[in-house]
């Protein structure tokens, strides 16, 4: 076993202090844009923490989705709201209570959890069965096995959540703008630096995304991480003016967004042939899992891209 207090432990403690410090700054800084940037930094630190906890799949997800995508979404909103400062809080006699009650509740829950962390004997009993049944799943990465086999039903509902969020955010479109292209119209000079970057990066991004998708079956990565990268490439290409932003009424973009969950649900429904639900037969486990993942990756990429672009809006 490792010595009781090693350099790595020191690293961990410093990392934790940094994470908490950045979280506090993000929560207290007045400037809203700064708070958003601090949240992204926070996400990157948390991703490092996940690497230290041996959870590389989560680290990839946290970096790509938790830090990257959430950050982009927030920055986009801050820019659209054209505000950086928090409005001065209205003075009210509840103001004191409105800070003290949350503060004491936060303190209570944090200290309660810390107490539990130190005193309770925690149990993780599922790792053994996960590994024991791995040969039947057709993949070597146990996390992928959980996501697309043992608990594939969670993932099915989760992709439906993404789908619902997409339709929900389309639902915020102005009625008279329905059918327009998503987001603001992009104004990019054709030979500008962004356009060049937007032409240069997508091929690299596609390769990285395919790598992460392909590696997900056996090592680290998977549909969600790869889908996020594809979404980023897609958005960059739109920002650079290489391709046009899609519109919500377009048949092809709707098909992209729907293909993954639809194929997944279809596979789930074929399970009734075996008097069950969402069966991944052992014989075809690997190709079927990869097919589901491929469709999901496409849909996740399309959905995330559309969520970032947001509803169509009038140019100011």
């Amino acid at each position: 076993m490792a010595p009781a207090f090693s350099a790595l432990t020191l690293f961990d403690v410093v990392l934790c202090v940094l994470i908490i410090g950045v979280a506090l700054c993000s929560s207290s800084v007045r400037d809203l844009f700064a708070a958003t940037v601090l949240l992204i930094i926070y996400g990157v630190f948390v991703a490092i923490a996940w690497v230290r906890l041996g959870a590389v799949d989560v680290a990839l997800a946290e970096a790509a989705i938790g830090a990257g995508l959430t950050g982009v979404l927030l920055i986009g909103a801050v820019a659209r709201l054209k505000i950086t400062e928090s409005p001065a809080a209205a003075v009210s006699r509840w103001q004191f209570a409105a800070k003290v009650i949350p503060a004491s509740l936060g303190l209570l829950i944090a200290s309660g959890l810390a107490y539990l962390v130190l005193t309770v004997e925690w149990r993780e009993t599922l790792q053994a069965p996960v590994l024991a049944n791995l040969p039947d799943t057709g993949v070597l990465n146990p996390v992928t096995a959980v996501l697309l086999n043992y608990r594939a039903y969670d993932t099915l509902l989760e992709t439906s959540v993404l789908f619902a969020a997409l339709i929900a955010s389309w639902c915020t479109t102005h009625d008279d703008l329905w059918g327009e292209r998503a987001g603001l119209r992009q104004h990019t000079r054709r030979a500008g630096i962004l356009a060049t970057f937007g032409r240069f990066l997508p091929p690299i991004g596609l390769i990285v995304g395919i790598h992460i998708f392909w590696a997900g079956a056996d090592k680290w990565g998977g549909a969600f991480q790869a889908g996020t990268i594809f979404a980023a490439v897609w958005i960059l290409a739109i920002m650079a003016g290489v391709i046009d932003a899609p519109n919500a009424t377009g048949r092809s973009i709707r098909s992209f967004a729907v293909a993954g969950p639809m194929f997944f649900t279809f596979v789930a429904l074929t399970g009734v042939l075996a008097q069950s639900f969402l069966i991944i037969p052992v014989m075809v486990a690997k190709p079927l899992t990869l097919a589901i993942e491929a469709c999901l990756t496409l849909s996740i990429a399309a959905t995330l891209m559309l969520l970032v672009l947001g509803a169509p809006r009038r140019s100011a």
Partner: peptide, 17 residues
């Protein structure tokens, strides 16, 4: 971290975003 918690966390991250 075990595989099941990792998978649940990834699901949670996606739901949160």
């Amino acid at each position: 971290t075990g595989a099941v918690p990792q998978a649940l966390i990834i699901t949670g991250i996606v739901v949160a975003v």
